[in-house]
Design a protein around this nucleic acid. Structure first.
Lengths: 215, 215
DNA sequence: TGTACATCAGTGAACGCGCGTTCACTGATGTAC
DNA sequence: TGTACATCAGTGAACGCGCGTTCACTGATGTAC
């Protein structure tokens, strides 16, 4: 990093991180809608106005948290493959909810979040493309993919290089939705008293999906 | 209904509904965390304190909305089978988010919401049980279901009468998660610029899932 | 190396705002005789 | 059918609270000569 590491710059970087950390913790307690600049400042024992030296508004603080969440999850998945997904989400339920839960009303994620948000699906698509290059067939029998459907998911097919075959693309989307659905259902409490052992259940699901998809 | 339909009772029922309607609309604009008793009252042109004659607190109002959302969706699904799911969700995005999105921090859904929340998965399980009774085999090949997994989903198997075979139960959960995942991804905006035609894509998905599951 | 000035971090008071909830009240509706 | 009393709906003021953001300020850190 070419920036001069003056004492000021060091202090600034550290405090920026501290603010994000406290804000992130608060997210878990009260949710994104109730995230409060004043409360963050209070917990850091500084004047609330001081936070504005670091983030010009509450929304920008939220954006920074959002990018951070997507990036952290993307990195976890890139390193550990799909199975890492629920582990990360369980360890960071509030970040997961911010990224993949219901949108925060009145808050529009700026476009700089897109790159971070794409990492997780991108990792999945890369695995599918590798299977295609290696010539591994899809595991389960699927319906033929019609022209309309092919067109509907064309941007996803075109995401990898070389492009994914439409059959694989359709499967990839289904797999992504299934994983996402499971993690969300578990995290948001909809499987309480229904699924008794989430680890066992999720592991079996991942194995099944891997079979289906030929990886 | 055995209750005496005095003018008062009629007025009360109507205003109760009006409050719920306004609150429901507000949910879509500002989200559950920012739902405001005062704002609802303002839109109905009544004193904010008057609302308390109908709902003793903000949380009870939220609970009523939650039960309503689950019930409405349950009814839509019971009548129209699984495919109705995204239609309902698209028409009522805020209710869907309340029911299936990230939990509202600090709000704990009381146990009277459970019955309503169960309707949608119950409808799915009923379809699976009928297929089992009719002797229709599962469509796609699946991994054998181990003992641990069987135990993990035992409460779900036991939900229907007669109980679902473990293989079918596991599939049912996967299907439910996949449907839920797709609807949530679409509704929360994660497939923008990726899936171009959600109707086509969802229809194909439902067909594929029906194949897999033998219905 | 030392000095003069510019930049930045952090403070504390203040702004205007909306919130949930309570309370004493007035007037209308319902009920018992 | 008419009257006396009890119940309920709705009002408006008030409570105490926390919020995002601004502003003029003090004092510390950095930079150019």
């Amino acid at each position: 990093v070419a920036a001069p590491r003056t004492a000021r710059a060091v202090a600034r970087a550290e405090l920026t991180r501290a603010i994000l950390d406290r804000a992130s913790a608060q997210l878990g307690e009260v949710g994104p809608a109730a995230l409060s600049v004043r409360q963050v400042a209070r917990e850091l024992e500084m004047a609330s106005s001081a936070v504005y030296r670091y983030f010009p508004s509450r929304d920008e603080l939220l954006t920074a948290l959002l990018v951070r969440a997507f990036d952290a999850m993307g990195e976890a998945v890139e390193q550990g493959a799909a199975a890492a997904d629920p582990d990360w989400a369980r360890a960071h339920p509030h970040e997961y909810a911010l990224a993949y839960g219901s949108p925060v009303p009145g808050y529009v994620a700026p476009t700089d979040t897109v790159a971070a948000a794409t990492r997780v699906p991108a990792a999945l698509l890369a695995v599918m493309r590798d299977a295609q290059l290696a010539g591994r067939p899809l595991g389960a029998t699927g319906r033929p993919v019609g022209e309309a459907e092919r067109a509907a998911v064309a941007p996803i097919s075109a995401f990898t290089d070389p492009p994914l075959e439409p059959e694989r693309t359709v499967r990839a989307v289904a797999v992504w939705a299934t994983l996402f659905g499971h993690v969300s259902l578990e995290l948001f409490g909809h499987t309480q008293n229904a699924v008794l052992d989430h680890d066992v259940h999720f592991a079996a699901l991942v194995d099944q999906l891997a079979d289906d998809v030929g990886v």
